[in-house]
């Protein structure tokens, strides 16, 4: 976990995984977590536009302090995982973070 530990009690009901931000902006509705292997400040801005509360950087990608600070300023929890996208999404889905719940 890289920032916003104090936001850990926020409830997350669904998520989406993508490296293309325009796809996130097109197809996501009320998803509250974003899993991505893309590392730049636009990931945080995309999450902000969608009112998302959590970003998970997969494939061992490490966001820069600038990215983490932008997320922190906007109360978005940032996590980093060594898992690949498929497995990270799969684990969340298998643990009942299902798409249809909201």
């Amino acid at each position: 976990m890289l920032c916003c530990e104090d936001e850990l009690d926020v409830q997350i009901h669904n998520a989406c995984g993508s490296d293309m931000m325009s796809d996130v902006l097109a197809f996501v509705k009320d998803q509250t977590a974003l899993l991505t292997g893309l590392v730049n400040p636009q990931v945080v801005r995309t999450a902000m536009m969608m009112d998302m509360r959590c970003i998970v950087f997969v494939r061992g990608k490490t966001p820069t302090p600038e990215i983490v600070n932008l997320a922190k300023d906007n109360h978005i929890v940032v996590l980093a995982s060594p898992l690949r996208m498929y497995e990270a999404c799969g684990r969340l889905y298998a643990n009942h973070l299902a798409e249809k719940e909201s």
Partner: peptide, 13 residues
């Protein structure tokens, strides 16, 4: 595209 945009979704979105 490597920055996460340029997928041809901007104007349609």
């Amino acid at each position: 595209r490597s920055l996460g945009f340029g997928a041809g979704m901007g104007l349609p979105n």
